[in-house]
Structures are given as structure tokens and as C-alpha cells.
């Protein structure tokens, strides 16, 4: 079975439309005892207009690090991009200066976060926070920016937006705050929206509403959506393509339907099995036994091999390369032909 997988260095790309965001061979390092060690390694993916890519993995798998690297939000002393390329509509972001990144952030590329309760500045009115984003990137008057704030708040379904712009975050519920965050991120009509676990901290019913909203915004505004989550249930709900991360690497990437039907990496199988229902559960994925290795300590061979039930001797010897599976998929497993079980 191994024979039908051929070695590739990068995931195959569909040429129908150029990707809005293309990450190639990205490696991010953090200092451990004064030595830089990789926590994100050779990660490649791309997102097209109107498409949702899910970046899935356990906490510590490097998915948030990856998203922060894309946003240029890694703090200078505690992380660095060692190599790789991040292109936003063709423009290279790796190595760009702070000023250049500031001009792109909030304008061409925006991000929303896990904790709507703490992601908004408590001492600034909601409207002011949106106005700030608008005026930073558009040469408009304060009144015009305010109108835009009301408009986007209305767009994301905040009721009576015209008066709610004057509210402070503490006067909003969790779900409303996440809507406000989304409004703020969409204020300048970005090409790419990164959503880092945007529903994890919310009640189940609110989660569904926010997912609906994001899907709607993606379709209406033609966003390229990079959706970061630990939940396969959420992935099933919103993603077109999925990149599964483990220990800083993408271990499998495929169209969502294919991945759910026929996972090619044992870790993906584990994630799918850990999915109790489509109801999102908070916290870690409960069912994969063992712990991920410490982010900065790489076992020889395949990083997942210590936890892998299909491990053979070869797995612990050489780190596996990416094997392409079918049209667009890749897996980082030397046994890509394993009869793994999908979600049913």
C-alpha cells in the first residue's frame, strides 16, 4: 500500500484560483534554555477566497503559534520565524517590518480570539474600538468611522446597533462580545480572517450561532477563513479543508469530506474517534491515550509514534516525510495505506 503514496515536499495546490493566504514551509522556534527549538515545523497550507481551512490539533500542537506567526503577533523575545514564507495575496509577510505589518493587520488580514470576555478593551466603548480599527486603515472622518461601526455591528447581528456602539464590553454578553469582535475584525473588509477557537468559551447554543455567523460572513464577503480549533465537530460544521497538526507539524491535510470518511494518519483517526457527537466539548480531546511529547523535545522518528497503535519499527527510526494521498491530500505517515476508520 505504501507504493501508491509518493514523496512530495509541499501539498499539491489546486490552480483554479490563486490562494489569498499561502503559508509555505513555516518553522517557528522558541528559546528553551537559551537555545532556539522548533515548535512549528515545515508547516504549509493555503486558503482561497470563500474557503475555510480548519487547523486542528490538541493544545500545544502549534496551531495557535502558527496563527500568531501569520498575524506577525509572535512576541519578539519569546518566538521567531526561523524560515518559511507567508504570502498574503502574493505579498511576503516573513521579514516585513512592524510598520508594514501594522498596515496589513486589521485591514487585509484580521483575527478573532478564543476569549470574547477578555479580548475587548474593558475601558473603551465597543464603538470606539471599531472606530479605532477603521480610522487606522481608512482616511475617514470620525463620524464616518462611527457609521461604519454601526453598520458592521448590525451586519453581525448585534440588535439595535446604533445605540449599542456606546456600550462598554462589560455590558455585553459573551456571545454578543464575540459578535462585536467579529464586527471589529470585519470593519475594514479583510481578505483573510483567522478565527482562533472562537466558540470554545461559549455556551453550546451560542457556539452554533457564531459558527452560522462566520459561515454567513465568509460566503457574503468572500473571506478566506482560517479556522483554528481542537474540535472535529466544529471542523465538520464549517471547514472545507482540514490540516491536522501534531507536535508542530501538519500530519495530514485533506478535503474535509475525504478526511472524515477516510483518515490517512493514525492521529486523525484518533481525533475522529474522540469526537463524541457533533456537540462541541470544552477542553482537550479526551480519548487519545498518552500525552503529546513536550513541544520542544522531538522523539526520533515519527512524533506520534509513542502513542500510535499502528507503530512499526521503522516509525521510530526516521521522521516521516509527507506522502500525497489522492488529489489534494497529504499525510505524514510512512504507512499511508492503513485501513483507518473514519467518522460514521
Amino acid at each position: 500500500m505504501i507504493t501508491n503514496g509518493s514523496r512530495v515536499e509541499q501539498p499539491a495546490m489546486n490552480e483554479t484560483s490563486a490562494p489569498v493566504l499561502a503559508v509555505e514551509d513555516l518553522t517557528v522556534e522558541v528559546p528553551v534554555d537559551r537555545i532556539w527549538r522548533p515548535v512549528v515545523e515545515q508547516v504549509s497550507f493555503s486558503v482561497r477566497k470563500g474557503e475555510t481551512l480548519g487547523l486542528v490539533g490538541e493544545s500545544g500542537s502549534g496551531k495557535t503559534m502558527t496563527s500568531l506567526a501569520v498575524m506577525g503577533l509572535l512576541s519578539r523575545n519569546s518566538a521567531r520565524i526561523a524560515h518559511g514564507s507567508i504570502r498574503l495575496t502574493g505579498q511576503e509577510l516573513v521579514g516585513a517590518g512592524r510598520r508594514q505589518l501594522d498596515q496589513l493587520r486589521g485591514d487585509r488580514i484580521a483575527m478573532i480570539f478564543q476569549e470574547p470576555m477578555t479580548s475587548l478593551n474593558p475601558s473603551m466603548k465597543i464603538g470606539e474600538q471599531i472606530v479605532e480599527a477603521v480610522r487606522r486603515h481608512r482616511p475617514v472622518s470620525r463620524a464616518e468611522a462611527r457609521r461604519r461601526a454601526v453598520e458592521v455591528l448590525d451586519l453581525v447581528g448585534v440588535p439595535s446597533a446604533a445605540s449599542r456602539v456606546n456600550s462598554y464590553p462589560h455590558e455585553f454578553s459573551g456571545g454578543m462580545r464575540q459578535r462585536a469582535m467579529i464586527a471589529m475584525s470585519l470593519a475594514c473588509d479583510p481578505d483573510v480572517l483567522i478565527a482562533d477557537e472562537p466558540t470554545t468559551a461559549l455556551d453550546v447554543t451560542i457556539q452554533a450561532q457564531i459558527l452560522d455567523l462566520l459561515r454567513q460572513m465568509r460566503d457574503e464577503l468572500g473571506l478566506a477563513l482560517l479556522f483554528i480549533t481542537h474540535s472535529m465537530g466544529v471542523v465538520a460544521d464549517i471547514c472545507d479543508r482540514v490540516a491536522v497538526m501534531y507536535h508542530g507539524q501538519v500530519v495530514e491535510q485533506a478535503d474535509a469530506d475525504d478526511l472524515f470518511e477516510r483518515p490517512r494518519h493514525p492521529y486523525t483517526e484518533g481525533l475522529l474517534r474522540a469526537m463524541p457527537t457533533l456537540v462541541v466539548r470544552e477542553g482537550r480531546l479526551p480519548l487519545i491515550p498518552g500525552r503529546p511529547p513536550q513541544a520542544t523535545m522531538r522523539p526520533t522518528g515519527c512524533a506520534f509514534s509513542p502513542r500510535c497503535p499502528y507503530r512499526i519499527a521503522a516509525c521510530t527510526e526516521v521522521p516521516p516525510a509527507l506522502f500525497s494521498t489522492g488529489d489534494t491530500g497529504v499525510t505524514r505517515c510512512i504507512r499511508p495505506g492503513l485501513p483507518l476508520q473514519g467518522a460514521t
Binding site: 493587520r105 477578555t118 475587548l120
Partner: peptide, 20 residues
């Protein structure tokens, strides 16, 4: 988190430090 939010919308560093 809201400091990260401010940076994510491209607010200049001095404004992040002072306003936020």
C-alpha cells in the same frame, strides 16, 4: 487578550501602550 486584539487590528505600538 485585548492587547493582542489591538495589535491584531494594526494599532501602532505607542497607541497599544498608551490607549490600551
Amino acid at each position: 487578550d485585548y492587547i493582542r486584539s489591538a495589535r491584531a487590528k494594526g494599532v501602532a505600538e505607542w497607541a497599544v501602550l498608551i490607549r490600551h
